[in-house]
Write a protein that binds this DNA or RNA. Structure first.
Lengths: 210, 210
DNA sequence: AGCGTTCTTTGACAGTCGTCAAGAAATCCT
DNA sequence: AGGATTTCTTGACGACTGTCAAAGAACGCT
């Protein structure tokens, strides 16, 4: 009986924990939304609460403080952003297919999720000033490196050669292109964005050996 | 006589304007210092004033508002940052000399001026959210592109070939490397920084035709 | 139905923010 | 030397910030 009772309580506890965690994730989504809209510097707890269906006080019921909330939001962001090209890699039969799929996805998300992307760069930059974000940012940046590396190494494989750079350099290169394209995209400099899109394909070839 | 008087007044006016402008530049330096220390999100006018020899009220005597002050600071930052490699380009006699000089300067300023550099990336990112910084940022970014292009096109010339990319792509590539190196530098991941330094030289060759 | 727990709202707190006005201090000019 | 201007300090304002406590609402269980 005690066992049954324990099991019950455990189940209750687990359900409550799950509910707790669910609400945390829900509020973190509102946080991401707010950050993407306003940027880190102008994001306040009351603004976040207004983007949710709750009042501002509830944030301190689910999170220890503002940092805890934003950290959770950042970790949650990562989950969607580090697997973006996996389908393209898995489904491409030829090098050309992979390259075109990658470039399309690259500039597709650039345009569709521009606000989310600027949020990421904002938070990554914040970590240059605030050490408490540093570890999460480094973790996510590492996963992004791996994501890019999966694309490039598979592209090299399909091309019958090997990448000419390290993971870090390949990532830095393509991420630099993405950032410049994002700046131009948000500045409505469409022809510059198109120019970079055309060049990305060639750039990928430059990153291969031979 | 009226002419003489006018000339006098003009001289006075000009001197006052010069003095006015001098003090503006002085306060803008304190602003840059503060931004480099704290980042945009945590930089307040009182903090800026504390980094100068004046009290906070004086900022509104010389600047219309906070935005005016920061804009002036950004414009001033540009003056030092877009000619960094010009000497290296002018003095290099061989391709190898240019490449080594560039890489040394690249990672030299990365370490010596890390706080200034993170400030630039912070403000550039701010412009993704705040349109009022957009034009100044685009202007500076364009000048940085030209700066990198002077290096790369001269390097190609000394190597007897041509760059394989556009200005934009070359800049984006190298700027991406710089940003990643800066993150690693400020995270005290020294071996990763060294790794990128070794790779930068090879990357430059990848950006040349043939 | 009623009790206990969990969840949410409300309102207040101590600070900080950008801005500005009033006056002190310094400087300039004759 | 003394009046006029420029420069700077001080203190205040309303608004906004993160945080927290108290009280109310909703829920689950017996």
């Amino acid at each position: 009986m005690t066992e049954v009772a324990e099991t019950k309580q455990e189940r209750i506890a687990r359900r409550q924990v799950d509910k707790f965690e669910t609400r945390r994730r829900e509020l973190a989504v509102a946080t991401l939304h707010t950050l993407a809209d306003l940027g880190y510097a102008r994001t306040s707890l009351r603004e976040i609460a207004q983007n949710s269906e709750f009042s501002h006080g509830v944030l301190h019921y689910y999170f220890a403080d503002k940092r805890d909330l934003i950290t959770q939001a950042v970790r949650q962001y990562e989950e969607v952003c580090v697997t973006r090209y996996d389908d393209v890699v898995a489904n491409a039969g030829t090098a050309e297919e992979l390259r075109n799929g990658f470039v399309d996805m690259f500039f597709g998300t650039l345009k569709a999720d521009a606000h989310l992307h600027r949020l990421w760069y904002d938070l990554r930059n914040q970590s240059l000033f605030d050490e408490s974000f540093r570890n999460d940012v480094l973790d996510i940046d590492g996963r992004r490196q791996e994501m890019i590396w999966r694309v490039l190494s598979r592209y090299a494989e399909l091309s019958g050669t090997e990448p000419a750079t390290s993971r870090a350099a390949a990532y830095a290169t393509l991420d630099g292109v993405f950032q410049l394209a994002l700046l131009h995209q948000l500045s409505e400099m469409d022809e510059q964005v198109v120019g970079l899109a055309e060049e990305l394909a060639r750039l990928m070839d430059l990153l291969l050996a031979k």
